[in-house]
Deep mutational scan, measured.
Amino acid sequence: MDETGKELVLALYDYQEKSPREVTMKKGDILTLLNSTNKDWWKVEVNDRQGFVPAAYVKKL
């Protein structure tokens, strides 16, 4: 969790967005987890953008 109590995830792999609903991340990025109710796609925030990334590409910290 960060200082505001939000849950964080670590990008395990690079991911290039394939639609406007997704976000690009690089391996090693720390992202804010917004929603993990879907087992396949998690909603995150990175670089002031919100979108989805494959759940298998990130790990909760």
Rank of each mutant, 00 (worst) to 15 (best):
V58F: 05
V9S: 02
L12K: 05
A55N: 02
N35G: 06
N38G: 09
L12C: 08
K6T: 12
L34V: 12
Q50H: 08
V44W: 01
M1D: 13
W42V: 06
N47M: 12
T32E: 08
G5K: 14
M25Q: 01
G51C: 03
Y15G: 01
Y57Q: 04
M25W: 02
W42G: 00
G5Q: 13
F52N: 03
W41E: 04
L12A: 04
V23A: 05
R21C: 15
Y13N: 07
W41M: 05
I30M: 06
P20C: 09
F52S: 03
A55S: 13
N35L: 09
P54G: 02
T24V: 03
T4N: 13
N38T: 06
S19V: 04
D40G: 08
T37P: 03
T24Q: 04
L12S: 02
M25C: 06
V53Q: 00
A11H: 00
K27E: 06
R49L: 06
D29R: 03
K39S: 11
V9L: 12
Y57L: 12
K43I: 13
E7I: 15
D48T: 10
E17S: 15
K60P: 09
V58Y: 01
W42M: 03
Q50Y: 07
L8S: 07
W41R: 03
S36T: 09
T37N: 12
Q16S: 11
A55P: 04
D48I: 05
T4P: 14
M1W: 13
L8D: 04
L33K: 01
N38D: 15
M25K: 00
K26C: 11
L8F: 15
V53F: 00
K43C: 14
A11P: 01
K43S: 07
K18I: 07
L8R: 10
K26F: 11
M25D: 00
Q16T: 14
D14P: 05
M1T: 13
A56P: 08
L31Q: 00
N35P: 03
A56F: 07
P54T: 01
L31T: 00
R21P: 05
G28M: 03
K39Y: 08
K60T: 08
E17P: 14
A56L: 10
E17R: 14
L34D: 01
V46N: 15
L31E: 00
D14N: 08
L33A: 02
G28L: 02
L12N: 03
K43Q: 12
L34T: 04
K43D: 03
G51E: 02
L10C: 09
A56C: 14
D2C: 15
T37H: 11
N38S: 09
K18G: 08
Q16L: 12
A55E: 03
F52I: 06
N38I: 05
A11M: 02
T24F: 04
E22P: 05
R49D: 04
W41C: 06
G5H: 14
T4F: 12
V46T: 15
A11R: 01
A56H: 11
T4A: 13
G5T: 12
P54Q: 02
G51F: 09
T24N: 06
E17L: 07
I30Y: 06
L31M: 14
L10T: 07
L34N: 02
V58T: 04
T24R: 05
K43M: 15
A55M: 05
Q50L: 06
Y57E: 02
V23P: 01
P54H: 02
Y57F: 12
L12G: 02
K43H: 10
M25A: 02
R21V: 11
P20L: 09
E7H: 11
A11S: 05
N47E: 12
D29M: 15
G51Q: 01
V53W: 00
L10F: 09
G5N: 12
K60H: 08
E22L: 05
T37Q: 11
L10R: 09
A11F: 01
R49M: 07
V46Q: 15
E7R: 12
K59I: 15
N38F: 08
T4G: 14
L12R: 05
A55Q: 05
G5W: 11
R21H: 12
Q16F: 14
V9K: 00
K43Y: 15
T32M: 11
Q50C: 10
Y13L: 09
E17N: 07
K18E: 07
D2Q: 14
A11L: 02
K26H: 09
Q16G: 07
K39P: 15
D14V: 02
T24E: 03
V44A: 01
L12F: 03
K26E: 05
N35S: 12
W41T: 02
Y57C: 10
K39W: 08
E45T: 07
T24W: 04
E7S: 11
V58L: 15
T24Y: 04
K43E: 13
D40A: 10
D2M: 14
R49C: 05
K59F: 09
A11N: 01
F52H: 05
D40C: 14
Q16N: 14
L33D: 00
Q16C: 11
D48H: 12
L61A: 05
R49Y: 05
P54F: 03
K26G: 04
E3F: 10
Q16M: 12
G5S: 13
L33W: 01
K60R: 14
M1K: 13
W42A: 04
K43V: 14
P20S: 11
E17V: 06
P54D: 02
T37M: 10
E17W: 06
E22R: 04
S36V: 07
K59N: 05
E3T: 14
V46F: 15
D14S: 08
L34K: 05
R21I: 12
K59V: 15
W42Q: 01
P20D: 11
D40F: 15
K6R: 14
E3K: 12
D40W: 15
L33M: 03
L33Y: 02
S36R: 08
W41L: 03
Y13P: 00
E17M: 13
T37F: 09
V46Y: 12
L10N: 03
N35Q: 10
D29I: 04
L31W: 03
T4E: 12
K59E: 10
T37S: 14
T32S: 08
K26Q: 09
E3M: 13
K18L: 09
F52P: 00
D14T: 06
V46E: 03
D2H: 14
M25I: 15
K39A: 13
G28H: 05
D48E: 10
K60W: 07
F52K: 02
V9D: 00
D2V: 15
L8G: 03
N35C: 11
W41F: 06
K43W: 14
P20Y: 08
F52C: 11
L8Q: 09
Y15E: 00
D14W: 04
